[in-house]
Nucleic acid binder design. Sequence first.
DNA 1: ATAAAAAAACCGAATGCTTGGTATGTTTTA
DNA 2: TAAAACATACCAAGCATTCGGTTTTTTTAT
Lengths: 214, 214
Amino acid sequence: MRAVKQSRAIETRKRILRETARLFALKGFHETKLGELMQAAEVTSGAFFHHFRGKEDLALAVIDHHMAERCRTLDRIEKALPASVGGDSLELVFRRLDAACEMVSRRRNRKGGCLIGNLSTALSDTHPVFRQRLSECFDEMAEEFQVHLAKAAEERDLAAAVNSWEIARYIVSVLEGAIMLSRTQRDMGLFHRQIQRLKDDLRHTFQGEAVLSG
Amino acid sequence: MRAVKQSRAIETRKRILRETARLFALKGFHETKLGELMQAAEVTSGAFFHHFRGKEDLALAVIDHHMAERCRTLDRIEKALPASVGGDSLELVFRRLDAACEMVSRRRNRKGGCLIGNLSTALSDTHPVFRQRLSECFDEMAEEFQVHLAKAAEERDLAAAVNSWEIARYIVSVLEGAIMLSRTQRDMGLFHRQIQRLKDDLRHTFQGEAVLSG
DNA sequence: ATAAAAAAACCGAATGCTTGGTATGTTTTA
DNA sequence: TAAAACATACCAAGCATTCGGTTTTTTTAT
């Protein structure tokens, strides 16, 4: 994590994006006012509107920035995780899930939900542009699991029996749902138990072993 | 469905609650402006503020109204469903799930997401009062499944092995997540397939039968 | 039952605060 | 030395809410 000296403009832009991501995850799109945002990012309105045409433009930029950042963070966390036993691709799915869990846990210390999920609930039915982009984000998340799921199916000669893409999207659904519930119920344990259950169900789908958890 | 003649005041109040529920499900709390709400409910600001002290008071009333209405609707839909085969309690879980699906499907024709889910993402981390109440709502939803799940476990002598309460909350998570994803991706088929997958997983947990769907 | 009185329900213009956005001028960087 | 980056004051629109007055409903008195 070297602190490279960057041009002031880029730093300003990054500061805005970072604070926006934080506030959007915490309060959502509409309740995040540009005023408090500029205060949090320590920029004046002049600086802000020099970098972004407005709130919507900012939100779209934040989505891009977040998805890139998210990907890097996940990869980093995953690498720090204990090596997976055996060459089983299903273990890679679980690894990715564990990484996602870890990321959610870290964020939750500062409260807030999923940025994409928040924007999704706030804008999906009123802003076609955002709906489209956010839909792609969910696909992007699912894709990370899909590749491993597909391999895991192949390894077991289940390629015809399981639809890895549907399962991947199911995983994303469970993640989002679990974030929503555990957030509102203020219970990170609930989140982890639900992901554990998801893993058990996945293990069964791929291995046919009965695993009861809970 | 008899159309009982009601006092004008009660009708006004109901009209406000109904339109608010619709708008909250569609655009969320913050983006639903009182102006458009009063227009949709065909009331003047005077009438509105006679019935509700403000937006927050309204929101809390809407939650209560919605939960009651939701319960009635679910029961009604469930009764219209084909009778469940055998006396298996797990079938009752599936019945309730089917009813929930049906309700979501009907609503989705007019767009919008889950009212509770929407409010939850918008207010959980900023409004303690709402967080508390919404948390109870999720519990209430889970409870509908829990009673049947517990019985199903007993019927199979699995009462010690499965935690019916955790599973019930898992079901709620999946429902919320599936609503979010299918809403953003504009794919009701996705929603149904994900619920189908959930059912398969549940069937396995309770019966140990391998059922692959997808 | 009916008029009078009281209370509830409703109306709509007015208000003041917030907010996203702009315009113009100054500093910093290339 | 030109252009990018930033600062500050400003503004118009939108917003939740208020308030004095009017209509409708309910209660009370006769």
